[in-house]
Amino acid sequence: MTPTASDAPADFEVALVSLNQWQLAWRRFRRHKLAMFGAGLFLTFVAIAAFGPFILPYEATNVPYPLKFCPGTTISANLGCPPFNDGHILGTVGGTQEDLLTLVVNGARLSLTIGIGAAAFASVLGAIVGGISGYFGGWVDTILMRIVDVLLSMPLLFVIIVFAKVFGYGDWRVILLVFALLGWPGIARLVRSLFLTLRTEVFVDAARAVGVSDLRIIFRHILPNAMSPIIVVTTLSVAAFIVTEAFVSYIGYGVNAAYNPTWGNILSNAQNDILVGNWWWPLFPGLAIVLTVLGINFMGDGLRDALDPRSRE
């Protein structure tokens, strides 16, 4: 054997520590300040949702002793009291006089559950359908893509009303289900186009040439290379679903506020009182939505950069 000398240029030495693509991506992500900030923000809200309700002194929907007036004033407590009164750090809401902090913290649970749950559901289903469609093509592809077209043309509110009629109004599970149902087709389209491109990659041909099965080609060659865009889109759709939930709840088709506070239905209940000047009521749930969505979007942008295999270091 003659070729003993490496044909790499002298300055090209194979590294001692070998990092795979995911490790490299994590290294790039860590250096992305805005993305790390966004991830921190998002994780903070996740922690609040997970542990907050156990720490807070008040029950979400239970007000033991309604007041007549806000402490130290002659303002009717029925309109809600401003922040920092009588232990209510963010104030209380009008009508029920519930503690706003408690509401927002409990609202985080469902808002995030719906956002993350719907995004996860939509991604998994979208990836499976899109993957099958893109890899196998033919009539399977045609049928699946027609279903996708139909679902993508359905108006959200209409579907929510139909589902609510069947499964009951105000149920958060219905909202999550509808979001997932209308969310997966978009992801399926993305995954299909990724698979269409990836299945013509030379390394896929190489795998086929040595006798690797279709199933293994899908899971070992195509899916790992399609993962980055899928992760980015899933992340961003968490934010999109949180905003949509807020919107749907705000106009009254969402989750029932009487049993399950969400950021959206807290905002919705606040809308009449904005006129009275109770700024804190809409401000804090609104802020929670904005900060969470911003955090997720920063994180998504960072992921996009970090996961791009063309970006070196």
Binding site: S18, N20, Q21, E201, V202, F203, D205, A206, A207, A209, V210, G211, V212, S213, R216, R220, H221, P224, N225, P309
Partner: peptide, 28 residues
Amino acid sequence: QVIFQDPYGSLNPRMPISDIIGEGLLAQ
């Protein structure tokens, strides 16, 4: 067997060399 033109496109960036070369052996 086949040797491809493009040395970059022909190796899956997400697989270690041992898997790239060993995959055919595993399949066969």
